[in-house]
Design a protein around this nucleic acid. Structure first.
Lengths: 168, 168
DNA sequence: TTGGAAAGTCAACAAGGCTGACGTATTGTC
DNA sequence: GACAATACGTCAGCCTTGTTGACTTTCCAA
């Protein structure tokens, strides 16, 4: 089995690592992310919210009772930045901030009924697109999709992704 | 072949469409995109640029001589927004704007030598991460990754992704 | 030739990042 | 009991990057 530069098998097996393939992957991320956020963005706009509000609502829904500090480490923004968003959500009655029972310095965040409804509306829209893409591409592709994305994350942030119930 | 709710084959084959699977997909996109932009962001920051500059440089490199209008349709922002970015890039000598020969209203955009160098530096960083993720996940996964992302794009924007030399 | 459309530029504003400084309540430690 | 550390909130001010509105230059078609 010669392995020269002209060997078709060799070039084929490495084809997915050529600069052109990598560029395609980069642009795929760019354009897909646009689609990924497009539907929620439309809903948010009519309510006067932005993506920052969506992120907060999403992760409060995922981890009810989470603290401000925990949310900060997930979102990777400053507390001043998060606070601005959180304040409007609390004022608008979408999020409730409860003083911690063990540690009264902490604030535990929960979605109100209205907050839960908005979360549902946003995630329904986003899931619809994700479901369509998954169905279109098939189960095998979904495995690959997840594998590549997981490998693309910063290692020190990956635990936020896998921290929940493992195996799902 | 009964198809009851307890049938393992059925639930397994549809497992990738459960709400929990979709939520994982959504968060995978969120965290992966953060990693995807992290390396270029660091380079851009030390130069006083942002992601908007990166996007402009990337697509001018991909399509030398492209017009401002064409760039607008790819990037999906207003021309005023793009213009601000473009102006600084031109002032800094990274991009050259040439008046169109047929239509003198048009401006054809090219990277200068310095612009090409910056593009190289940015895309090297981003390709390194993409390459690592591709290698980690394997060729089969890359196929799936691309299939899912392509299905996630807005149909009317997808042509920007596949418009180049097909089959690469 | 003139009026509309198209390409691009300038001005001003808003969202949402950031840093820095500071205040307050609470907790834990010496 | 004093004191440092922690969790959170807030004010001020900056930057990037999105927006709309008003404008010029250029082209083309009636």
């Amino acid at each position: 089995m010669a392995d020269g530069p002209g060997n078709p098998a060799t070039s084929e097996s490495l084809l997915f690592l050529t600069d052109e393939q990598l560029r395609k992957g980069i642009e795929a991320m760019f354009f897909a992310y646009r689609g990924f956020t497009a539907d929620p963005d439309r809903i948010l706009e009519e309510l006067g919210y932005g993506r920052a509000h969506h992120r907060a609502v999403h992760f409060i829904h995922r981890s009810p009772g989470t603290t401000v500090n925990n949310l900060l480490s997930i979102l990777g923004v400053t507390k001043q930045s998060l606070n601005r968003v959180l304040r409007t959500l609390i004022e608008d009655g979408l999020v409730e901030s409860r003083v911690g029972r063990q540690d009264r310095r902490e604030r535990h965040l929960h979605l109100t009924e209205a907050g839960t409804q908005l979360e549902r509306r946003l995630s329904d829209a986003q899931r619809d697109r994700m479901r369509h893409a998954f169905r279109q591409a098939g189960p095998e592709a979904v495995i690959g999709f997840r594998a590549v994305l997981e490998a693309m994350m910063d290692p020190e942030l990956r635990h936020h992704y896998t921290a929940l119930k493992e195996g799902n």
